[in-house]
């Protein structure tokens, strides 16, 4: 890291944080909403990684899940719809010493913010991007999202969604310089926590799609899934996720090496089964912030340099 960061490394590294240290305001999501379990898993991750709350920033857009930063005791930035990724990019570019997490819904990331999503994958700035995908617009009361299944009836498409849904994993894997792509489900907390941990530890832009129940509007989409583990296939690998504890519950397991991008794309495209696990990771991909080796100057040094710059324009 550049010398700029050392200015900011003032926290007490000996301190140990517990889950309670990350408790924010009382969450106002609906009872049974998947957001609650993502929040718990995140707080557990932060405690496990012992991240100082003041050195951690959660950035979000607009939507149910984007209220997330209010409910966790770190720094938070609850911005505008679809634009969490540029804000997070600005935070990390200027302050590489901070731990940056981005929380987006499907409308936020895949629809109005799609342009930023594609480019954030390519920038590969070190941050964790969580796509909380309930396949519907919830906050504005049940409009079609890009991930809403074809034929699904909503208030904006009452004759059913016209087109096949966008596949965020497939799309992400298609972008140049993608470096970490995983899918998990909030109703499998152990898998979700392990995925988030792998994402946090990956150096670069870690994209995690979290399948998420919306009991209020789309209970019929994911609501029954927890009772049908046979419809889920776990992608397991020593460089991905392989949890012994899940072996009994999810017998359908596929060994997949996350280094294999072609196989990852093939698996992502096949919609016959819901796959959870790390599709792809490559820790060696170039990171945008690392391409910028910036000198750190004091104010007098800057003035001296600027004087020399002005000399070039002197009359």
């Amino acid at each position: 890291m550049s010398a700029v960061c050392s200015l900011f490394q003032l926290h007490d590294e000996s301190r140990e944080y517990g889950m309670g240290d990350y408790e924010g305001a009382q969450a106002r999501w609906c009872p049974g909403c998947g957001d609650h379990s993502v929040l718990s898993a995140t707080q557990r991750l932060l405690a496990r990684e012992n991240l100082p709350p003041e050195k951690t920033v959660f950035v979000s857009g607009i939507g149910c899940s984007s209220r997330f930063p209010h409910y966790i005791n770190t720094y938070g930035f609850h911005g505008v719809h679809g634009r969490a990724l540029p804000v997070a990019t600005g935070v990390k570019l200027h302050r590489p010493d901070l731990h940056v997490f981005v929380v987006m819904g499907d409308g936020d990331c895949i629809s109005i913010g799609a342009g930023h999503w594609i480019h954030a994958i390519r920038y590969n700035v070190d941050m964790v991007a969580l796509l909380l995908d309930n396949e519907i617009y919830g906050l504005t009361k049940m409009q079609t999202s890009p991930t809403t299944p074809q034929g699904y009836v909503t208030n904006t498409q009452p004759r059913g969604s016209y087109l096949p849904p966008m596949n965020p994993i497939e799309a992400t894997l298609g972008v140049t310089n993608a470096s970490f792509v995983a899918q998990t489900a909030e109703w499998v907390p152990a898998h979700m926590l392990a995925t988030m941990e792998a994402a946090y530890r990956h150096p670069g832009f870690s994209f995690v799609r979290i399948l998420q129940r919306c009991p209020h509007f789309t209970d019929d989409l994911f609501g029954e899934l927890p009772k049908h583990p046979e419809r889920v296939q776990l992608l397991v690998h020593e460089h991905g996720i392989d949890l012994e504890a899940l072996e009994g519950r999810f017998p359908n397991r596929l060994a997949h090496d996350p280094a294999d991008l072609d196989e990852a794309r093939r698996l992502a495209e096949d919609a016959s089964v819901i796959r959870l696990g790390v599709f792809f990771r490559d820790d060696s991909r170039p990171r945008y912030e690392e391409t910028r080796h910036l000198p750190a100057y004091t104010a007098p040094e800057k003035l001296e340099l600027l004087e020399r710059e002005l000399d070039r324009y002197a009359v």
Binding site: L85, P86, L93, H94, L294
Partner: peptide
Amino acid sequence: RFGGIVHQAEDEIAAAGVAIGASYA
């Protein structure tokens, strides 16, 4: 050379967002 970053963003909106994120931090 002065320790600054010029970020060419993917669009005008993102450019504003990156600047705001940096200012905030």
